[in-house]
């Protein structure tokens, strides 16, 4: 059997879901027996591979770079997982959405508190512009499975991945499905 190609991405989120992934501790060795991590903040790969089996997406879609990356990832990935509450609901990342646009947030961060030369970041091609509306993952691309939690506890991630590795469609229930 081919080794499984697992990718992870970190969009608009706090990296807590990735921390929780690392909390799998020794089970990571079990995972390493059957899978390779081919892309993500935990590995030094610049380009998303041409084909991945599973991609865990942490964070909400918050800027134009995220949108482009997710379009590419959706095309190149067989199983796309919304990993954690920010990806599933927008969560804390989307708290700015009721403000209506990105402008109030940028002004609050870069203009209001600045003592010297207040300026909004503007580096086309370097700093991706924020979307006016932060999107949960499923509002940007079709998602295959959802793994909620802020962050999802390691046990929940393990239960989810174990079902995937067994070739089943993961089906979380009860306490494993709780948001927050």
């Amino acid at each position: 059997m081919d080794r499984l190609k697992i990718a992870t991405v970190w969009l608009g989120g706090c990296s807590g879901c990735h921390m929780s992934l690392l909390d799998l501790d020794e089970w990571l060795f079990e995972l390493a027996k059957v899978a390779d991590v081919v892309y993500g903040p935990l590995v030094d790969t610049k380009e998303y591979p041409a084909a991945a089996d599973v991609c865990l997406v942490e964070g909400a879609v918050a800027n134009t770079e995220h949108v482009e990356l997710m379009h590419q990832i959706r095309q190149r990935t067989r199983v796309l997982v919304a990993f954690g509450d920010c990806a599933v609901t927008g969560n804390v990342t989307a708290l700015r959405n009721p403000l209506g646009s990105a402008a109030p947030v940028l002004e609050r961060a870069y203009l209001d508190p600045a003592n010297l030369r207040p300026a909004l970041p503007h580096e086309p091609g370097v700093v991706p512009p924020l979307l006016d509306r932060v999107l949960p993952l499923q509002e940007a691309v079709p998602v295959d499975f959802y793994l909620p939690g802020c962050p999802p506890p390691a046990d929940r991630i393990k239960a989810f991945l174990q079902e995937l590795l067994a070739g089943k469609a993961p089906h979380l229930t009860g306490a494993n499905l709780r948001f927050g």
Partner: peptide, 19 residues
């Protein structure tokens, strides 16, 4: 089961994208 690789292609229903 999605292993091995030659599984049929059906996108699961999920929420629509929103601009």
């Amino acid at each position: 089961p999605w292993l091995p690789k030659s599984s049929p292609s059906t996108v699961r229903k999920s929420a629509p994208p929103k601009g």
